[in-house]
Amino acid sequence: MAQALLTGTKLHLVFQVGMDEEGKPIMKSKMFNNIKKDSTTDQLFQAGTAISSLTNDMLNNLERNDSSEIIAE
């Protein structure tokens, strides 16, 4: 049987920075590496909203990206 070991977590923020000439939103993203692997969803949400409050852009999406190593037991 195989097991997955969490090796890293990243916080990905996606901002809407404007609209193009066709009226579609223009998105810009920022990735934060080296996030504590045991961070809760609430902690990541608080961090993401705090970071977004420092910009003039609207936070469109907040994602947690986990990486795992799969090993055999």
Rank of each mutant, 00 (worst) to 15 (best):
K36P: 05
K28R: 15
Q43P: 01
L59H: 13
F45N: 02
G23P: 02
M27W: 13
V17S: 11
K24A: 11
T55N: 05
P25F: 08
H12T: 01
P25G: 07
D57E: 13
L44N: 07
F45T: 10
Q16A: 07
D38H: 12
K37W: 03
M58Q: 14
H12I: 09
N33S: 13
L11I: 07
A2S: 03
Q46E: 09
K36I: 00
L62R: 14
E69Y: 08
M31N: 10
P25L: 06
M31D: 06
K36Q: 11
L62S: 07
S53R: 11
E21R: 15
I70T: 06
P25D: 04
N65Q: 13
F32A: 01
F32E: 00
L11S: 05
D20N: 15
G18M: 02
N60T: 14
K36V: 03
N56E: 07
S53Q: 14
S53D: 09
N33C: 04
R64S: 03
T40W: 08
V14Q: 03
V17K: 14
N56R: 15
S68K: 12
D42G: 07
I70N: 04
N65R: 15
T49Y: 11
F45I: 12
N60C: 10
T9D: 00
L5R: 13
N61P: 01
Q46M: 06
L54N: 12
T49G: 01
V17N: 10
N33D: 10
S39Y: 10
K10A: 07
S39C: 09
N60G: 10
S67V: 07
T49P: 00
E21I: 08
F32D: 00
D57H: 15
K10F: 05
T7R: 05
M27C: 04
I26S: 08
R64F: 02
I70G: 01
M58T: 15
T41L: 06
K10W: 02
G48N: 02
A72F: 07
K37F: 07
H12D: 01
I71L: 04
E22Q: 14
E73D: 01
A4Y: 12
